[in-house]
């Protein structure tokens, strides 16, 4: 259902809808993050220059995906950090641990995309089917 990047955007009148998929939860989370970065910085080439550790807990897999995407938004808003690579070793339905490599936004090399205000709960879904995972997310932009 999603193309080979692991995510695709769908029509929403005011905001942006995204469907992401992955063979595992770790892959789903990485693909969803790539989709978010594509919104914020379009097709900018991002170098994996800086490594950041991430550790999150949540009550459900949906809350965990929302917390993950919100965390990346927070990094961008505060330090302009853009992720490029994800080494998510352990992703369960309620906890995530791993590393993210990326660099800070550089207007000389990177493209300005859309400011994402939040990861909404409207029609937010994470589902397991056909041996993989899919997620449906609407971003407020």
């Amino acid at each position: 259902m999603t193309d080979d990047t692991g995510y695709e955007f769908f029509e929403h009148t005011a905001d942006v809808g995204m469907r992401a998929s992955g063979g595992s939860l770790a892959e789903l989370f990485a693909h969803a993050a790539r989709g978010l970065v594509a919104l914020v910085a379009e097709d900018s080439a991002i170098r994996p220059a800086e490594t950041r550790a991430v550790r999150l807990r949540a009550a459900s897999v949906e809350a965990l995906l929302r917390a993950w995407l919100s965390e990346l938004l927070m990094w961008f808003d505060t330090d302009r950090f853009l992720p490029a690579e994800y080494a998510l070793g352990a992703v369960s339905a309620t906890a995530l641990e791993g590393e993210v490599r990326g660099e800070r936004f550089d207007p000389a090399r990177h493209t300005y995309g859309t400011e994402v205000k939040g990861v909404t709960r409207h029609q937010f879904r994470v589902e397991q089917r056909d041996g993989g995972w899919t997620a449906n997310v609407i971003f407020d932009v």
Binding site: H12, A14, H122
Partner: peptide, 9 residues
């Protein structure tokens, strides 16, 4: 009015 999230815009 148009489609928002939660409330319509």
């Amino acid at each position: 009015i148009h489609w928002g999230y939660g409330f319509p815009i």
